[in-house]
Design a protein around this nucleic acid. Structure first.
Lengths: 248, 248
DNA sequence: GCAAAAGTGTTCCGACTACACCCATGC
DNA sequence: GCATGGGTGTAGTCGGAACACTTTTGC
């Protein structure tokens, strides 16, 4: 970047002053509650102006010496304690007037948001309740109106989630360590909507690929035949890396 | 973004000061020279410090009141005059120490780069030679060492180009208004490498999809049977929008 | 036994592969 | 005529869709 120096822009007449920025990161954190078959996203309650008392995405402003990813990690770990984590940059929103604080101090700084997309395991994600700020998992279809342009970011994250699910093994970052094939199928159904595939076809396709290892253990959930517990075998998956469209 | 106020970070001890940013946009501009079967990217010569005399991507620093996309558009139109244009955000690079200017003024501002990905038609892309700065199309496989982390951005853009080509109609933003099926096939071959598909199969698959309209005109290029000129029919393509994997 | 959930197998059909072959032009 | 590139057709094969069926559990 930065092919042009600040001075090279002063050449012509009007208002070519560079904008000053603060940079924030906002994270759409997804998780799946396999018990209740719900796709969840983490929201926090704002307790400062602007948008006091409104829900928004977890986020943080980038500090000196801190990388974007570090800031994202910090924002996340302030809100929830996790073991495994998938994190990926989403999109950068940087138009003027997206943050009301800009107008307050006129020539002041502009706020730019680099959004991130995260996946965590629901079972081992412990929310950090600090007693002050509200924090909660919201089913994706019940997300209220959020502060700033955060609804747009959530929508963007949802799109990415659907796409990723189809051609990369992120499902296993959301599922517990061991899971049944029904769990896996449920997950796909929850995210991609019903009738994305027949269960039995889904089943045989995935097993044929050979990176799901049968643990030998079985689990019985209410009535019906007990299901085998599987484990994702990263070794066996390696050859599929970079290859398109493995799932679904 | 910005769930946390600046003051909320001053709570604990050490250096929690927010970083100050200038934001730049850098564009990887791709074009395809169908005459010579080359995939090209546009580079400009730096004539300011740092990295004087080195090639880099076209870019600009975001000015007050300007959106990211506007800045990208400005950076592009300073260098090349085009009719049609495909523009899409790529990735945001924002780690500390990616720009040597940061260290100069110690506590000074940090430079963040939002990279964009652009496609233009080679035939009607007129480079703007201002007599001072060098500017040139480089074959992608001959791109030299660039200033900053721009080589990384180019690599990223190349990946995106390959992916996009497979499931969206961006090819028609690069090809001339009318083109032969060989032109289209060449384009895919140039970008994706040889033997991605048989020509005759590629041909019938695309024609069957029905969004390539035969103009009735033919063109003869040297020996051999003249080829029909086709046109991309956006209307007819509409139903395929949002559907996965149409091409290849 | 019966319902419920897991797991297996089979048939059908469309799509992609890999060719072989025909057509129109320049020289 | 013949080389060159454009365009058409076909047989073989692979994989997904749909659905019927079997197995193992709880009650």
């Amino acid at each position: 970047m930065l092919a042009h120096e600040p001075d090279s822009q002063a050449s012509s007449g009007i208002s070519h002053a560079l904008a000053d920025f603060k940079v924030g990161v906002d994270i759409v954190i997804f998780s799946v509650d396999t018990e209740q078959n719900r796709l969840l996203t983490l929201l926090v309650m704002r307790h400062d102006a602007p948008f006091v008392g409104q829900w928004c995405l977890p986020g943080a402003l980038v500090q000196q010496g801190e990388s974007l990813e570090q800031a994202a990690d910090r924002a996340l770990s302030e809100k929830v304690r996790v073991n495994s984590l998938y994190l990926e940059q989403l999109f950068t929103f940087g138009g003027p007037d997206r943050d009301p604080r800009e107008s307050e101090d006129s020539f002041g700084v502009r706020y730019l948001s680099v959004s991130y997309f995260a996946l965590v395991r629901f079972a081992d994600a412990k929310l950090i309740a600090d007693g002050v700020s509200g924090i909660a998992w919201y089913p994706l279809d019940q997300v209220p109106t959020l502060a700033f342009d955060h609804n747009e970011i959530v929508k963007y994250g949802d799109r990415r989630l659907r796409n990723k699910l189809e051609y990369s093994p992120i499902a296993f970052d959301v599922l517990p360590e061991t899971f049944t094939l029904s769990d896996l199928y449920q997950l796909y159904t929850i995210v991609l909507g019903d009738n994305f595939s027949d269960y039995s076809n889904f089943r045989s396709r995935l097993l044929k690929l050979g990176f799901l290892a049968d643990t030998g253990r079985k689990v019985s959930r209410g009535a019906g035949r007990p299901a085998s517990l599987y484990r994702f075998d990263a070794q066996a998956f390696a050859p599929f890396k970079d290859k398109p469209l493995v799932f679904i």
